[in-house]
Nucleic acid binder design. Structure first.
Lengths: 252, 252
DNA sequence: AAAAACACTTGATCCAGATCAATCAAAACT
DNA sequence: AGTTTTGATTGATCTGGATCAAGTGTTTTT
């Protein structure tokens, strides 16, 4: 292994207190010395590459994972080879919260692009949280947020049509990139059209057609995986299911 | 108010330790004296009636609610008067976990039939959980379970067709009734066809037709809100999307 | 007891999005 | 550089479940 590689790996091993994500991540709201205690149990591994697994469905649950750079998808595989994509995870987002109850993962997680991921042994985190009330509080908040997000997604799948779904997806990415200091209107999709469709309960072809349509309507510019949102306001209207002529839809 | 009513109300005010739900509910896995401490913060109100609200979207989050008897639906109202039903809650099930993060409810909860509901002030519960590690653990488990259930529901809405959805719904009720000591094959639906359809992302008419079809196929017997499951095994096959002739479906 | 409101069922028709099929384009591999 | 593989686009067709419509049964109101 070359020296260069070791150096770039070491650069990734940043302590929580000097990590740029600390305001989005587990340490949010903790006192500096509590962050140090948390820091001691966090493991930082070398970067993973496209397709690598964080864990697979059925694995014993040991750790929560936090994306540091890159992106990760979680999905529920089904016996017949199909899968349901459950989420795409950006830096600062926690992965594995659904495994606490049964102490076993019932979804799989794979990285979508070269990514750095922090690992937090849950037993140690739980023990630490008994002695740091603000950490316990943060855990409750993060678990609760995950529930809210899933409920939001239930409404999307239960009530929204194809164009509303894709618009909502793009705006969600946009807002999350923004909070992480990236451009909210110019970004790269690390997932395939197929994965987007799977996540949104739509066929690949539908995603493709919608991108073309949105581009025709000057809502965005798309070139393969590079997206530029041209009219975020109007995209918000699309999510709300507003008609072309500006009328609202009645009931659902 | 008559004496009878007061007596029947008092009968509902049972301490956690003598509550038949204690193995499903918050106190699960707690030491008897910890249950007593939990018991002190639990409020038990008089029964609520069909249509009564536990809370409304936008309300300040104060308490978690636990169904003691009866049933409750939670739903996300949308501006245009529509709604997405998020869940139906049976005795022992916790309601309001999605409100912790923002300290505000973003769904509404109404009882479906005359119901008794326990109320747990969250601030007090959180404080108690800092001093009772097993209570903290139980909270993590319950929050995690909620996430799993929602993810399960995402797969249902994203990948399953109408008959698979209804079969899964009925089996879910069946299993939950069973764990509560009720018949898994003979029960009463406290929600309307409209609410079932809304929950499953289907139209009322589709629900109605499927009940008729399932009855024709001798999977169940339905008479208004009274359901008898006649062939739970075959219903499980329907959920898996098996073809009439016994073949499995390939991919999804 | 009649009337009104509501919940459910059943049939006929329609349509958004799936599926099938054919290219096309960009990586990845020889 | 050429070949294969994989991903994305576009068009044509099909269909599951929505929507529309009409009627029935049940509960609530008066």
């Amino acid at each position: 292994m070359s020296d260069r590689k070791v150096i770039s790996f070491e650069k990734i091993k940043i302590a929580c207190k000097s990590c740029s994500l600390s305001t989005l991540c587990l340490p949010m709201g903790l006192e500096p010395n509590d962050v140090d205690r948390l820091d001691e149990i966090v493991k930082r591994n070398r970067p993973l590459h496209r397709g690598d697994y964080l864990f697979r469905e059925g694995d014993k649950f040991q750790c929560l994972y936090i994306v540091k750079t890159g992106s990760v998808k979680t999905y529920a595989p089904s016996e017949d080879g199909g899968e349901q994509v459950l989420g795409f995870h950006l830096p600062g987002e926690l992965i594995g919260l659904d495994a606490i109850e049964k102490s076993r993962h019932h979804c799989s997680a794979r990285v979508l692009e070269t990514s750095a991921v922090c690992e937090v042994p849950f037993n140690q985190l739980e023990e630490l949280s008994t002695t740091i009330p603000s950490l316990q509080h943060q855990m409750y908040r993060l678990l609760s947020r995950e529930i809210s997000q899933d409920e939001n997604m239930l409404t999307l799948l239960g009530k929204k049509n194809a164009e509303e779904r894709l618009a909502a997806f793009l705006l969600s990415l946009s807002e999350r990139f923004k909070r992480r200091g990236f451009s909210p209107s110019d970004f790269h999709l690390s997932m395939s059209r197929h994965e987007i469709g799977n996540y949104l309960g739509l066929a690949v072809e539908t995603i493709s057609r919608l991108f073309t349509r949105f581009q025709d309507e000057k809502l965005l510019k798309v070139e393969r995986k590079h997206i530029q949102l041209l009219d975020i306001e109007r995209l918000r209207c699309v999510v709300q299911g507003e008609e072309r002529d500006g009328n609202q839809r009645l009931f659902t």
